[in-house]
Computed example of a mutant assay.
Amino acid sequence: MSPLRFVAMGDSLTEGIGDPVADGWRGWAALLAAGLAPPGGGDTEFHNVAVSGAQTSDVLKRQLPAALELRPDIISVVVGVNDTLRCTFDIHAVAARLDQIYASCAQQGALLLTACLPDPGAMLGLPGALARPLARRQRGVNAVVHALSERYGAVHLHAAEGDWVADRGLWSADRLHPGERGHRLLAARFHALLAARGAAAGRPPSREPQLPQPTRSASIWWLATAGTGWVARRCTDLLPQLLTLAADEVRHQVRGSSARLDLIASHGVATALAALSAAEQPDAA
């Protein structure tokens, strides 16, 4: 019997950051892989090509060709947060790249897994004027992922909000990546969705962690050391633009026109998706 092939693409979330094991990182995808095939009824061949810091362009250009060469039966694409943290963010470009990625997976006959993700500004606890522009970007990416997931029949996990986002015990010291408990929860939720589709016959991943969750002092230490470096690396790219966006946010708030910014963002998502639909129908009037 041929093994069930599962290939995971994406960024640090799928690479497994926040869920340490002896030889590096494990993560939700590896935990999920163990529960796809029934015991004694076949093997699962798991490949993780996700890379920390990856954007949609990296997945399209580098990860996708490698993933498709493996002829996967199931393929996950969880990406987009890093796009929102760049000054080059363009919802039209993100939508076009995700459409190409999803379409390529579907054309090969692989069952596609996708997820919408929490807003990084809120997770980091940024001030409102700084957090709201990032939240608006993430909502836009999530709206695109929702629409395209439906178009390509993906197994889609709604992970952008809910109790799990607010439960700090599910998150690692960096506040951006799930800890072991969070990765296990993601794996279990994906497993439930796949089982409902008849695509996961093994036991669901355990939700019980094997390691203690990070202490508050560990979180503070990370923010004072590695966290500072993380922010500094992105300051050279995002911060000047983010400050401009924050100033614009404040101006609209003073004028009572903040809703206009939401409407502009929503229009951007709508036109990006409309452009993809038009490209699929070149003869349309």
Rank of each mutant, 00 (worst) to 15 (best):
C116Y: 01
Q108K: 10
I75N: 00
G182I: 01
R233K: 15
A160R: 09
L112A: 05
A270D: 11
T228M: 11
R132T: 10
A30K: 10
G227S: 05
S12Q: 03
V165H: 07
R175Y: 05
G18E: 00
Q241G: 15
D11A: 15
S76A: 12
A34T: 10
T114N: 01
L32H: 09
A8Q: 03
A33Y: 01
L245H: 08
A54D: 06
G182C: 03
G202I: 00
Q241M: 15
F89P: 02
A285M: 14
D58I: 12
D174V: 07
E69T: 13
Q281H: 15
D19G: 09
I17L: 13
Q63N: 11
S277E: 14
A30S: 14
A154S: 12
L276P: 01
M1I: 13
G227P: 00
A154P: 01
A196D: 06
Y102A: 09
E280C: 15
T56C: 11
L134V: 10
A159I: 06
D99G: 10
E161G: 12
E280I: 13
H183I: 02
S104I: 04
W222L: 07
A29V: 10
A274G: 14
A29N: 09
W28A: 11
H146L: 11
L185D: 00
L245Q: 13
A270L: 12
R260G: 11
A247Q: 14
H158I: 12
G109C: 05
P3Y: 10
L242D: 04
G179W: 00
T84V: 09
L273R: 06
E150M: 11
V155P: 00
D174Q: 03
I264D: 06
Q55S: 12
Q107S: 15
D237I: 10
A201N: 09
I17V: 15
Q100A: 13
L238G: 06
L130R: 02
L157P: 03
V155W: 02
L273C: 04
Q108L: 08
L31G: 08
P205F: 04
L31R: 15
Y152K: 12
L85G: 05
G41Y: 10
L130S: 07
H267R: 15
P214M: 09
L126P: 00
L211W: 13
A93G: 08
S2Q: 14
L85K: 10
A199C: 07
S12D: 03
G229A: 09
P72D: 03
L211F: 14
D283P: 06
A188F: 02
G24V: 06
E161W: 09
R255N: 09
G227T: 04
P65A: 08
W222G: 08
D237K: 14
S277A: 15
L85V: 12
A37D: 02
V144C: 04
G268T: 10
R189E: 01
A110M: 03
M9R: 08
T84H: 06
L276W: 00
R203N: 14
P65T: 09
T44G: 01
C116Q: 07
